[in-house]
Simulated assay, not measured.
Amino acid sequence: MTTQTSQPRGLLERPLDRSARVLIAGSAGLAGSALWRCLTRNGFSNLAGPRSAELDLRERQAVFSWFATHRPDVVVLAAARVGGIKANATRPADFLSDNLRIQVNVLDAALEHRTQRLLFLGSSCIYPKFADQPIREEALLTGPLEPTNDAYAIAKIAGIQQVKAVRRQHGLPWISAMPTNLYGPGDNFRPDEAHVLPALIRRLHHARHTNAAHVINWGTGTPRREFLHADDLAEACLHLLEHYDSDTPVNVGTGTDLTIRELSQLIATVVGYEGTVQWDPTKPDGTPQKLLDISRITALGWKPRTSLEQGLTDTYTWYKNHLGTATLRH
């Protein structure tokens, strides 16, 4: 008698042709640049990633013309207007409009040219503010969003729904992945745009080198967050493109979290800052906890490789090496 084992739902075994034309939309960003490194490392020889100066993805005709000329076989849509809690809270119209236009243009152009494999990158902020923890993919659209980034979340939810609609109407095997908070080389350290981790690196580095007695961080420090190295996300994207085919979006994370206060302490150690860290509770905390259930992707055979301590060290090294250069978005 043979024992049959059940396969994870949506399991696919279809290695990508390493000579396939692959478009990485958003190749200059944190996720996109990591994807470029990952695909190059894995033998892909025909990558395309036009920068925004070459191709503004918000311009519909330009996007359609690019697809007509280059006809990519695979598309990873990693392009987005992104930012931390301050940027999202103060410029919601920009985040909604820009991200909707980017997504609709790229997805419509890919559909017109029958692009056979496409991966849309969303965000863990798509889930309800008070979703049960850890958050399963089924929590989508079951409750109200976090108000400080609801415009960005709505745009990402629209992208997920468009991928589902294309699958249902046109039968193309497109998929979506929902990464948790990303960090790593190439992150955005601009004061008004940075997410919490690069913002803390920048602030604590500056405090150390100016001998500041204390720094003040936003909020109470009590919210819990999960952090994934961008290189781990890139490997997950390749794994999903070759092993997954379902309309259910897939969470990508580490399965562990920590408080922002604990993160600040870790970064202070990496940076070498020995002063006092204070907290400003008049500033927003955001969602109390945002930990993803990653059982779906681990059942497909993927798991993260980079510890937070090692990832923070690598990211800080990159930051120091690029201070004062055009590469650092400072």
Rank of each mutant, 00 (worst) to 15 (best):
T2S: 14
T5N: 08
P8H: 10
R14G: 02
R14D: 14
S19F: 09
A20L: 08
V22R: 11
I24S: 07
G26Q: 06
G32C: 09
G43F: 14
G43K: 12
S45N: 13
P50E: 11
P50L: 12
S52Y: 13
L55M: 07
R58A: 14
R60K: 15
Q61S: 15
D73G: 12
L77A: 13
A80Y: 00
V82A: 06
V82D: 03
K86Y: 11
N88M: 14
A89T: 15
A93R: 12
D98L: 08
D108I: 05
A110M: 12
A110N: 04
L121E: 01
S123G: 09
I126H: 00
A131T: 02
A131L: 05
D132N: 11
E138R: 10
L140W: 04
I160A: 06
Q161M: 14
Q162T: 15
G171C: 04
L172T: 04
I175P: 05
T180L: 02
L182E: 01
P185F: 11
N188L: 13
D192K: 08
I201Q: 05
H206C: 12
N211G: 09
N211E: 13
V215P: 02
V215Y: 02
G219C: 08
R224V: 14
L228T: 12
E242M: 07
P249Q: 08
P249T: 10
G253K: 03
T259S: 15
L263K: 01
V270D: 08
T276F: 07
V277M: 14
V277E: 04
Q278M: 10
D280G: 09
G286P: 08
S295A: 09
R296M: 06
T298F: 00
R305F: 01
S307Q: 10
G311Q: 07
T313N: 15
H322V: 09
G324E: 12
H330P: 03
